[in-house]
Every structure is written in structure tokens, then in C-alpha cells.
């Protein structure tokens, strides 16, 4: 099967944060530096026009990956390639920078409360000088607002006059205003009510089809991810544990953590039935377990898992980082219903 040329690629991406206490306090308490490895050795590719989703629980590093990919943080190690070009070079040129945009989680924090909607949406247009005169900007903003299901007259209002779903539409209009090809969506619907979430997801999928957009989609909600993704990456403590085509992942999840996640989702179809919850909690990324980070919670863990970190290797139509899967021990685990 010929691989389509990657449009966006992450190679061994890592980002560490120094969360040490201030120097003086450290001197008195005698403790060392504390490094939080938010993202460690993450690699993936996104072919043009497709959606890669990253899922995982809070603190797994998925939002940090989003920010690395769009250049908000410089990586500690590794690199990001955007359309074959190193991200740092790409972001140096406005003509490249305008090709990527981001949609954020909180519709209340992502729009400047003091700006009118038309100025919010026009900010990228003005920053990149995409229209020659004020009339051109106004027409373009009007068209964008229409495109996301609002009215051109809404431009004169302030963000607080809109509901959460409408604000997210404004956020999408802003992201689209520089005619980008790649959108990074960081939990775009997790702050919305479920009926509004459907509106926004439908809108995003329509736009992808119509404009040929490439998405990096970050979410903790597996059901949402299933609806939008071509490929899904499951993250745990800063690393990818499984990368798989969306259908394969849901048909046959392989990594014990992926299975645990699926098992944990309260499912509508199960009304009135009990299910077996996963034990334990996500450990701190400042002091992650040795070997495979999931081993303290894993029903399949053995001594190898405690000492040796598994690599992400091909297994059954997907990439899985698990000794048990690679050794063929995983089949003994009860299938997720």
C-alpha cells in the first residue's frame, strides 16, 4: 500500500517543562530540579485532507502536542515538518504561517471580550494583509460568518452576546479567515453541551469536505473521536501507546490502556448494566513509572514491562507500544465489549 505523502509530520517530538520550585526554596529544602516530561518521543504523520485524533486522559500531553505542532512552544527535542518544511522555517514566513490555524477549547476564553466579532474574525486577515481595503475585509468577514452559520450583521456584536456554540462558530470563522489548509483543534467541543457539540462537529466535518482541510483533533471523548477521525493516536503519560486507523481501533483495540479506556466509557446502550472499572489512577508525569508507564495499572504487566519501555511497533494493522501485544500475551485479556 503506497503511503500518501505526509502533510504534517512529527518526528520524535518531546517537550519538557521545568516545574522546579524557585531557586531559593530549592536551596533550603535541598530538593533537585523537577522536570515534567509532558511529551516524550511522539511521532506521527497526517496525510493531506485527513484527520488524526489524539485521545487520552488529562495530563497525557495531547494538548501540548497540539501546541508544539502549531508552533506555540518550541520542542525540547525532535521536530515538526509542515508540508515537507521544518516548522521553524515555515513559521518564519507569513505566507506559510497563514496555512495553519488553531481552534481552542474554551469558547469563553478564546475570543477577546473587548473586541467586536468582526475585528476578531478579521485579525488574521489584517495580520497577513490578505485584503487591500476595509471594504474587502468587511466582505470577507461577512462571508466567513455566513459560512459558519452566523449572519454578517453579527460582526458588530461583542462575544458576550453569543452562546457557547455560537462563540465556537466565531472561533472557527477566525481560524478559516486566512484560508488555512491545516487546523489544529484542541478539544473544540468539550466545553459545549451535547446538542451543540453535534452542531459544531457537523460544521467541522462539512468544512473539511468542502475545503479539503487537514485536522489534528485533540479530544478526551472517544465517541467524538470516532465520528471525526481517519487515524487515532492514544496517548498515556506523554507517549503514544497505540496509533491505528479509526475503525481498526474501535473494532480491535490492542493496547491494554486503549481497552481500559473503552471499557470505562459509560455507554448509553448499557442502561442498567454494570461494568468492570479499571483500577488505579494516572501517575504523575513528573515521576513516571519505569519501563512501560502503564504497567502499575496493567493486568498483563510482567517484569519486562517494569524495566523495559516498549517501542511503538506494527501489530495487527496498527502501531502498538506494548510488550504483551508483541509477545502475543494480549489475547488472553478479555475483549472489551
Amino acid at each position: 500500500m503506497p503511503e500518501p505523502a505526509p502533510f504534517v509530520e512529527a518526528r520524535d517530538l518531546a517537550r519538557y517543562f521545568d516545574v522546579s520550585r524557585p531557586v531559593l526554596q530549592r536551596l533550603f529544602s535541598g530538593e533537585g530540579r523537577r522536570i515534567l516530561r509532558a511529551v516524550d518521543g511522539v511521532s506521527f504523520t497526517i496525510p493531506k485532507g485527513t484527520t488524526l485524533s489524539l485521545v487520552g486522559e488529562s495530563g497525557c500531553g495531547k494538548s501540548t502536542v497540539a501546541r508544539l505542532i502549531v508552533g506555540l512552544y518550541p520542542p525540547t527535542a525532535g521536530r515538526v515538518l509542515f508540508d515537507g518544511q521544518d516548522l521553524r522555517q515555515a513559521r518564519a514566513a507569513a505566507s506559510q504561517r497563514r496555512r495553519m490555524q488553531m481552534i481552542f477549547q474554551d469558547p469563553y476564553a478564546s475570543l477577546n471580550p473587548r473586541w467586536r466579532v468582526e475585528d476578531i474574525v478579521a485579525e488574521p486577515i489584517r495580520a497577513f494583509g490578505l485584503e487591500k481595503d476595509a471594504a474587502g475585509v468587511r466582505d470577507r468577514v461577512g462571508a466567513l460568518l455566513t459560512q459558519v452559520g452566523l449572519a454578517p450583521q453579527d460582526g458588530a456584536k461583542f462575544p458576550h452576546e453569543f452562546s457557547g456554540g455560537q462563540r465556537q462558530r466565531i472561533s472557527i470563522a477566525r481560524a478559516l479567515s486566512s484560508s488555512p489548509e491545516f487546523l489544529v483543534c484542541d478539544e473544540p467541543t468539550s466545553a459545549l453541551d451535547v446538542s451543540v457539540q453535534a452542531q459544531i462537529l457537523n460544521l467541522m466535518m462539512d468544512l473539511q469536505r468542502r475545503l479539503g482541510l487537514t485536522y489534528l483533533f485533540i479530544s478526551h471523548n472517544l465517541a467524538v473521536v470516532r465520528q471525526v477521525s481517519d487515524t487515532i493516536g492514544v496517548m498515556y503519560l506523554g507517549r503514544l501507546v497505540e496509533v491505528s486507523p479509526a475503525e481498526t481501533l474501535f473494532q480491535a483495540p490492542q493496547h491494554p490502556y486503549t481497552r481500559a479506556l473503552m471499557e470505562a466509557i459509560p455507554d448509553m446502550a448499557m442502561a442498567g448494566h454494570a461494568r468492570a472499572p479499571v483500577g488505579g489512577e494516572v501517575p504523575s508525569p513528573i515521576d513516571p513509572p519505569t519501563g512501560c508507564a502503564f504497567h502499575p495499572r496493567c493486568p498483563l504487566a510482567n517484569t519486562r514491562c517494569k524495566v523495559e519501555r516498549p517501542e511503538l511497533l506494527v501489530a495487527g494493522g496498527a502501531m502498538v507500544a506494548c510488550h504483551a501485544v508483541q509477545e502475543g500475551r494480549a489475547t488472553s485479556m478479555p475483549e472489551a465489549a
Binding site: A94, R98, M100, A109, S110, E123, A127, S171
Partner: peptide, 13 residues
Amino acid sequence: NKEYVLAARVIGV
């Protein structure tokens, strides 16, 4: 650190 500032930084303001 609010997202509207991040949005401006993404486009290179």
C-alpha cells in the same frame, strides 16, 4: 495565557 492571546500568537502577531 488565555486562548485569545494564543490565537493571536498562532498567526504571528
